[in-house]
Each structure stands twice: as structure tokens, then as C-alpha cells.
């Protein structure tokens, strides 16, 4: 964020103070984010050492390996696993600070580029799902709010069911219906946009129901605000009221929840990527935890924590833009 003098002069006396406060707010949030990343790295480091079994086994390709004692010792020295735990910890942290994630135990490739390609695949999936879910929820809300009792009940009923559907079941149903019966789409995630349809639908539908539930409530409250009455009194049409005035309020809790939703999409990605055999962070994580590939698990955990922090801060910023009242409350 850059502070330019001429705009602050135009904006009036209180502008610099407000901007300072905003800068301070951003700085505090960033510092908090760094702390969380450090804590996540620490928790993951020690938690993974608690997993029973010898990490050397993971490096040598599973507990069944017939490696000699000398080979085991050599590997242990090579990966620094023979040093005291606390030394290993500080070594690992000092490497993480410069974004050195090491080498995967199982795949024997550098972790950072490998995980980044997986991240890309998962990001496409989650962002597409988030967009689809938002569009779906808005469409559902706009079309069924304020209408008759039956359409409202239908809307909330749909949202309720959608929100209660487990990802893995929805995925199976979609495969049965759209792949096996109708033969429209491939049952596994092939490269290209066609392969993205089923995974995105699977992740987006429950989220649609969930966002719809949350926004429906605040929409009902927004309809009772005085500004709606005054808009109506000015002769605003029903759709004008809905789109120009009420929707903005209804969207607020949805926006603040998108950070949380993004986190839950990452969890959902584990299931969806497994079912549709799609490369990505989730499947990588599941495999890495199973074979105890410590560097990969650490990298995935840190990346998802970082993504979560960035999205949370971003949603807070959007929240402040959509609803200026937030700033006043927060800085008071």
C-alpha cells in the first residue's frame, strides 16, 4: 500500500489518520499471519515426529525394504536425522525461512516445485468451485426470496439438502448419473475443462447450499431495514430493491465466510481429488501422510495455511469495502 500525498490532501483532514490506522491494521494482520505460519510449521514438525515408525523407512521405500544397517545409518546422517531433535527443528526452521522445503522422501524430487504444480491444480479447482457456489447461491437467493411461501420453502429445502451432502457421496452420484448412465462426462478428471466439470460441481454444490442458508437469513433481515422502505417510497421496483439495496447486505456474511469456505474446500479437495484421480494438493497430502513423507506434508500444510491467511485477510478487506461500517467498529 502506498501513501500518496495529493489524495490525502483532497480527502480532508482526517484522511491521513484513517490511512495510518488502515496501514497499522494491515501490518498487524500480516504479523499475525507470520506468527500463524511459524506455529503451523512447529506443530507439524513435532506432530510428524510422533508418528510411529522410522522416517528412514519412508526414505528407503516403506518398512519392507531390505536395506543394510550401514545404508540406514548413511541415509540417517544424510538427512540429518541422527542429530538431536531440537537441532533438527532449528535446522528445518532456518531452511523454511528461505523457502527451502527440502527433498521428498518418497519421490526424491525437490518439494517446492513439485508442490507448487499440485497447488496450481487445486487452486483452479477451489477457485472455480467458489465462483460456481457464489453464482449458484446468489441465483437461488434472488429467485426464491421475497416470493411466495412455497418457493421460499423450496429454496431453503434445497439449500438444506445441498449443505448436508458429503462430497464423496455427491461425487459418486454424479458419476453414476452423468458418466455411467448419461455418458456425458468422463468419470475421472481428464485434462482440460471437461474433466473439471464433475469435480467442481462436487465441491460447489454443498457450498452453494451453505452460502444460501447464511445469506437467506441476512436477506430477510435486510428487507426490514428502513432504507428498503425509503427505496420503495422513491418508487424503486421490486427487482431494483432486490438487486441494488438488499443484495449488498445479504452478501456480507457470505463474503466473511468465504475465507472459511476456502479452507473447507481444501479439505474437500482431498476427497474430490482422490475420487476423480485428479492431481492436486489434497491427494498429495493424503499420500504423503500415509507414507510419512515429512517434507511434503510440511510444505502442503504451510501452503494451505498461507492460502487460508491470504484469503481471510482479502475477505476482511472486501468486507470493509462493501460495508464501510466495519472500519468504524474495528478501529474504535
Amino acid at each position: 500500500m502506498t501513501v500518496s500525498t495529493d489524495t490525502s490532501a483532497l480527502a480532508g483532514v482526517s484522511a491521513p489518520a484513517t490511512r495510518l490506522r488502515s496501514l497499522g491494521w494491515v501490518a498487524r494482520r500480516a504479523a499475525g499471519g507470520v506468527f500463524v505460519l511459524w506455529a503451523v510449521a512447529t506443530v507439524i514438525f513435532f506432530a510428524l515426529r510422533l508418528i510411529p515408525g522410522d522416517p528412514v523407512d519412508a526414505i528407503l521405500g516403506g518398512p519392507g525394504s531390505q536395506a543394510s544397517a550401514e545404508a540406514v545409518d548413511q541415509i540417517r546422517a544424510e538427512y540429518g536425522l541422527d542429530r538431536p531433535l531440537i537441532v533438527q527443528y532449528f535446522l528445518a526452521m532456518s531452511k523454511l525461512v528461505v523457502a527451502d522445503f527440502g527433498t521428498s522422501y518418497a519421490l526424491k524430487v525437490a518439494v517446492a516445485p513439485y508442490v507448487l504444480t499440485q497447488l496450481w491444480s487445486t487452486l483452479i479447482l477451489t477457485i472455480a468451485s467458489l465462483v460456481v457456489a457464489w453464482l449458484g447461491a446468489l441465483a437461488l437467493i434472488i429467485s426464491t426470496s421475497g416470493r411466495g411461501r412455497i418457493s421460499r420453502a423450496l429454496g431453503s429445502g434445497l439449500e438444506l439438502l445441498a449443505a448436508a451432502v458429503p462430497h464423496f457421496w455427491l461425487a459418486s452420484l454424479l458419476i453414476i448419473l452423468l458418466s455411467n448412465t448419461l455418458n456425458w462426462l468422463p468419470p475421472i478428471s481428464v485434462p482440460g475443462p471437461l474433466g473439471l466439470v464433475l469435480p467442481v460441481l462436487t465441491l460447489a454444490l454443498p457450498l452453494t447450499g451453505f452460502l444460501g442458508q447464511v445469506m437467506r437469513e441476512s436477506l430477510a433481515n435486510a428487507y426490514e431495514q428502513p432504507f428498503v422502505l425509503s427505496a420503495r417510497a422513491r418508487g424503486e421496483s421490486e427487482w431494483g430493491v432486490r438487486l441494488r439495496h438488499v443484495l449488498r447486505h445479504a452478501a456480507l456474511p457470505g463474503i466473511s465466510l468465504s475465507g472459511w469456505a476456502f479452507g473447507s474446500l481444501l479439505s474437500g479437495a482431498v476427497v474430490v481429488e482422490t475420487i476423480f484421480a485428479r492431481p492436486g494438493l489434497g491427494r498429495t497430502l493424503l499420500n504423503a501422510v500415509t507414507i510419512r513423507d515429512i517434507p511434503v506434508v510440511t510444505a502442503v500444510a504451510l501452503l494451505s495455511a498461507l492460502a487460508f491467511i491470504v484469503v481471510t485477510i482479502a475477505t476482511d478487506v472486501i468486507d470493509r469495502i462493501v460495508d464501510p461500517r466495519v472500519t468504524e467498529v474495528a478501529t474504535r
Binding site: 503451523v40 506432530a47 510422533l50 479452507g263 479439505s267 482431498v270 501422510v289 500444510a301
Partner: peptide
């Protein structure tokens, strides 16, 4: 802070690591 850190880890990751242990 503890709650923040737990939030930052996707729920399934917490669960997976715990199950692995």
C-alpha cells in the same frame, strides 16, 4: 492464537495427521 493456528490448518489435515500418529 491456538484457535487461529487450528483454523489455518484445513480440518482434514488435522484429522489426517492425528490418524497417522
Amino acid at each position: 492464537r491456538i484457535v487461529e493456528v487450528m483454523f489455518a490448518l484445513p480440518g482434514l489435515l488435522l484429522a489426517l495427521v492425528f490418524i497417522a500418529i
